[in-house]
Amino acid sequence: MSTSASPKRDSAGPPAGPVIELDGATKRFRSAGGVHTAVRDLHMTVGPGEFVAVVGPTGCGKSTTLSLVSGLEPASAGRVLVHGRPVEGIPDGVGYMFQNDAVLPWRSVLDNVAAGPRYRGASRREARDRARDWVARVGLAGFEGYYPHQLSGGMRKRAALAQTLVNEPSVLLMDEPFSALDVQTRGLMQDELLRLWSGSGAAVVFVTHDLEEALVLSDRVVVMTAGPATVKGVFEVPLERPRDAEEVRLTGGFLDIYREVWESLREEVQITRERGAGHAA
C-alpha cells in the first residue's frame, strides 16, 4: 500500500505521467476564529483512464481536495498539477459533477446539455447534435424537450451526467453526485457511469461517503484522515472490469477489500465522532 500508484503504461511502452498530481498540497481558510486548515500535506496521483475514489469521515476535506484540482480554490502550500502544469485557475479539460444538479431550470434537457459546447465555441447546430447524441447515451432519448422539474431524480442525474460528459473531459471530478438518490436508482447510475466512462481515457476523482460505492466504481480508494485531512492510505481494488454494480457486491473479493478499507476508515470515523461528542459536551 502506498499513497501513489505507478503510472499506467501506454502501448508505446514508457510510463504515462499522472494526469492529476497533488504534491504536499495544503489549504487554509481564514475564519472568525483564526485560520482553519481544511487539508494538509496531500500527496496523491491519478493516471490517465484511472478511477480513484476518495473516502473519509464527514467534514474532513474531501470536497476541498476537488476544489484544489479544479482550480476553484488555490492551494495555500504545496503543488497541484493537472497534465503536468500547475493549477492556476480552472484547467482545460476538467468536468465537475456536483452533489446538487447544475442543470438550469428554465432550459430543456437538450439545451442544458448543449450549453457546454456552445460556451466552448461550437455552432448552435453542432452543439445540439452533440447534445442529442449524449442525451441518447444516458438513456433520455425522447425527453430532449422536457424541463428539469418534469424529470425524476434519476433522470435529472442522467441529464447532469450528459451535461458533464458532452465536453469529453480528460479529468472528471465528482462530488457525491448520487448521494440524494434511492438505493435502486443509485445502483443504476453507478452502472451508467461505468459504462459511459469505460474507454474514455478520463482520469476520475470520485468523492463519496459510501464505501461500497467507492469500491464498486474505482481502481483505487484513497482513505483520508479526520480533519484537517491528509492521505492515510491508498488501497488497490482487485476487482475485474467490466463490473456490474449489484453483482460485484456479492463476490468474495469485494467483501475482502471492503473489510480491509473499512478497518482503516473506521478509526478516522471514530475520531470524528469523539470530537463531535466533546464539542457537544
Score class of each variant (00 low, 15 high):
residue 151 L to Q: 08
residue 87 V to R: 03
residue 42 L to M: 12
residue 233 G to K: 13
residue 60 C to L: 12
residue 130 R to F: 00
residue 251 T to H: 04
residue 85 R to I: 01
residue 42 L to V: 14
residue 218 S to Q: 03
residue 21 E to I: 03
residue 187 G to R: 13
residue 273 R to K: 14
residue 43 H to C: 06
residue 200 S to D: 07
residue 60 C to M: 09
residue 107 R to S: 02
residue 23 D to Y: 05
residue 261 V to F: 00
residue 168 E to H: 14
residue 35 V to S: 14
residue 114 A to Q: 10
residue 51 F to Y: 13
residue 32 A to D: 15
residue 169 P to D: 02
residue 1 M to G: 14
residue 36 H to L: 15
residue 238 P to H: 11
residue 255 L to M: 12
residue 255 L to T: 11
residue 137 R to P: 09
residue 186 R to D: 10
residue 242 P to F: 08
residue 28 R to W: 08
residue 89 G to S: 03
residue 246 E to I: 09
residue 128 R to V: 09
residue 151 L to A: 10
residue 260 E to D: 13
residue 2 S to Y: 05
residue 119 Y to A: 15
residue 97 M to G: 01
residue 81 L to I: 05
residue 143 F to I: 00
residue 191 D to R: 09
residue 64 T to K: 07
residue 62 K to S: 08
residue 193 L to P: 05
residue 253 G to F: 00
residue 191 D to P: 09
residue 40 R to T: 14
residue 239 L to C: 11
residue 41 D to R: 06
residue 161 L to A: 11
residue 188 L to M: 13
residue 268 E to P: 08
residue 38 A to P: 11
residue 31 S to V: 15
residue 165 L to T: 03
residue 66 L to N: 04
residue 54 V to G: 08
residue 153 G to F: 02
residue 203 A to R: 00
residue 266 R to S: 15
residue 183 V to H: 07
residue 128 R to S: 12
residue 195 R to C: 05
residue 36 H to P: 06
residue 207 V to D: 11
residue 45 T to H: 08
residue 271 I to H: 12
residue 90 I to Q: 06
residue 230 T to F: 03
residue 258 Y to L: 13
residue 210 D to Q: 04
residue 96 Y to V: 13
residue 114 A to W: 09
residue 42 L to W: 04
residue 108 S to N: 08
residue 8 K to G: 13
residue 280 A to S: 14
residue 103 V to D: 02
residue 43 H to Q: 13
residue 144 E to H: 07
residue 191 D to Q: 10
residue 63 S to W: 07
residue 226 A to Q: 12
residue 161 L to C: 08
residue 280 A to W: 04
residue 245 A to T: 05
residue 260 E to F: 01
residue 171 V to Y: 03
residue 148 P to G: 08
residue 63 S to N: 08
residue 262 W to K: 07
residue 38 A to K: 07
residue 162 A to N: 10
residue 49 G to P: 09
residue 155 M to C: 06
residue 7 P to R: 00
residue 107 R to K: 14
residue 120 R to V: 02
residue 193 L to S: 03
residue 187 G to C: 04
residue 205 V to S: 04
residue 201 G to S: 12
residue 116 G to D: 02
residue 204 V to I: 13
residue 42 L to D: 04
residue 164 T to C: 14
residue 22 L to F: 08
residue 86 P to K: 03
residue 159 A to L: 10
residue 121 G to D: 00
residue 110 L to S: 11
residue 173 L to A: 06
residue 164 T to M: 12
residue 247 E to N: 05
residue 73 E to K: 01
residue 93 G to Y: 03
residue 94 V to I: 14
residue 253 G to S: 04
residue 122 A to P: 06
residue 202 A to M: 06
residue 195 R to Y: 00
residue 69 V to F: 06
residue 138 V to Q: 11
residue 120 R to P: 04
residue 233 G to H: 11
residue 236 E to C: 05
